[in-house]
Design a protein around this nucleic acid. Structure first.
Lengths: 158, 158
DNA sequence: ATCCATTGGTTCAGAATTCAACTTCTTTAG
DNA sequence: CTAAAGAAGTTGAATTCTGAACCAATGGAT
């Protein structure tokens, strides 16, 4: 058995898979952003609307929302301020924990969500889902789910 | 045959695949960024170093570099200015086209690249490649390559 | 009761990003 | 040859993002 001397570089197959993932994630975010622009929303706006829409009473604690959308508290705080100014969301105090705040969907926010969601789904289909095919979908999930798991736990520690 | 009335929402399988892709791409970028921090580089810095390193004469036209790294000319211009100030890169005039500029790797840039690359590769392995397995790699590439293709052509048009 | 370490959230300053305007040079068409 | 259109890059202002410092409230320990 030889002693390992150098770096374990990526093989060609690994390279191209890696680049494909990289390229897709960037190009896709860009495309989705473009498709949301006519509605005056960013991807981040939209994701927050989704999270709140799917939550009990259309509200979420700031911390939980930050965790769910994988962004820092700081970034979320700014983001919510902007969305508050846009009338999509409001902050509300939390009674059980006087430090805490809820981000709450406004009627306007909910209406916006109902209007935009179909377009966004269509966009996700057109540029991603429908290009994969049923087998591609399963393959993708099977491959990525463990990676996501690894990274999520790593995040808590980090 | 029924008339299609509503939105073609995502199925559960589609949802989870979509979220997995989303989460992995965000968490992964974050993790890689963290792993590069000790070397004083960002992901964007690194990617530019890679592109220049692999190019003839360690140089690339600004436009080509912008295209290769999927960013706007403006963003690249700022980016290169920063890297120039950090001594990793320099601008050089192009003789065949007097409008044009090359971004050129400096010795320092090349040295940095040689030093950092092994760590970065290890990072990509640890947090992505090695979690996929050979079959996962192929599956991933097979699934994503057509998507990347679709998005790239869409980009030129859009 | 009283520390004190944690958690929840904001704020500020500095860095990065976007978007549109602009300059310069090149190419094409007449 | 010249005018107009297009391509290569930069710049500057406005926006967003990051990271650290901060304040207030909570939850244990003792």
């Amino acid at each position: 058995m030889e002693t390992e001397t150098g770096t374990n570089w990526l093989t060609d197959e690994e390279q191209r898979a890696w680049r494909a993932h990289l390229d897709v994630s960037r190009l896709l975010m860009h495309q989705l952003e473009r498709d949301l622009q006519p509605f005056g929303l960013t991807n981040n706006d939209y994701e927050i609307l989704v999270n709140l829409s799917e939550s009990e009473d259309h509200r979420m604690r700031m911390s939980d929302l930050a965790a769910a959308t994988l962004q820092s508290k700081s970034r979320l705080s700014h983001q919510i301020t902007r969305m508050e100014n846009a009338g999509l969301v409001r902050r509300e105090n939390c009674e059980s924990d006087r430090r805490g705040l809820y981000a709450v969907l406004t009627d306007r926010g909910w209406e916006t969500m109902r209007e935009v969601a179909p377009h966004h789904v269509a966009s996700v289909r057109q540029h991603f889902i429908d290009l994969l095919g049923a087998s591609g979908i399963d393959a993708l999930y099977g491959s990525l789910a463990p990676v996501a798991e690894h990274l999520r736990t790593r995040r808590k520690i980090g």
